[in-house]
Amino acid sequence: MEPWALTLLNALVWGALWALLAVGLSLIYGALGVLNLAHGTFYMLGALLSWALTPTLGFWGALCVAPMIVGLIGAGLAQPLVIRRARAPLSSLLIMFGIMLILQQLVTLSLQMATGELRHAVAPPLRWPIAIGARFYDGYRVIVALVASAVLLGLWALWGWTRWGCMLRAVRDNHELARVVGIPVPRVQAGVFGLGAALAALAGALTGPITREVSPTMGTEILLVSVLITVVGGMGSLGGAFAVAVLYSFLENFLTMLADPMLARAGALVTIALILLIRPQGLGGAA
């Protein structure tokens, strides 16, 4: 019994993390019309930066600062590289791919030079075992779920109830019209790119103490899964991304209990991909 209760809890935690990643990707697609292949790299950057900053700022300080830095990097890169050329999909894909490769290599290089090692162990920031029956659940993970949910709620409020959110939706729905009514489209786009990057970085910084390890390649698989979640959720649809993220997390965690972990993940990916056969535009996508 306990293993199932714990698995349920863990599925919720990872659901919130995947949602952070997928919502970020979806936001970026909505505003800029590009598929951010560097999303996994931002995730990795967040995890590594927060690991590197923890000795000076403490874990919680690093958790706040790392996503901000990554967000600024994202916004800075968006302006010259992405926005001006976002029209041709093939070019934008290659640009994102190039950014991903270069960022990843720069990180690898600096990590190698600074520490001589690529994989680093991450110590848990706090020890708070929550007893569930005879077993324990790591209380840190519960905090992760709470932080991620709070950020997602804040985002939802921003999206639905503020002037900024209104501009975002306008840019997503119609570029030209948004420009005509005086919205500074390029600036909004850069801001959204930075925001998406920061969300990915936050997910990375939160995950570090869960996986107990950070390395420059940790974002590769994350990218592929979150891209699929976003597409199945409907490109640009935040609600869809959220729903599919949670669905994927439940499938992955519960299937792992029943089968080989790799087959379970493959099964979860195939299952959510099948949704595309029924709704090619994705769950939340407009028909």
């Binding site: 070019s91 190039g98 950014i99 490769l101 290599q105 290089l109």
Partner: peptide, 19 residues
């Protein structure tokens, strides 16, 4: 060795920007 991987990224980015 890292120069090789870095070079690959630069190739992609420049090709894409000047596509």
């Amino acid at each position: 060795p890292p120069g090789y991987a870095l070079a690959m990224g630069i190739v992609v980015l420049t090709r894409a920007l000047f596509r």
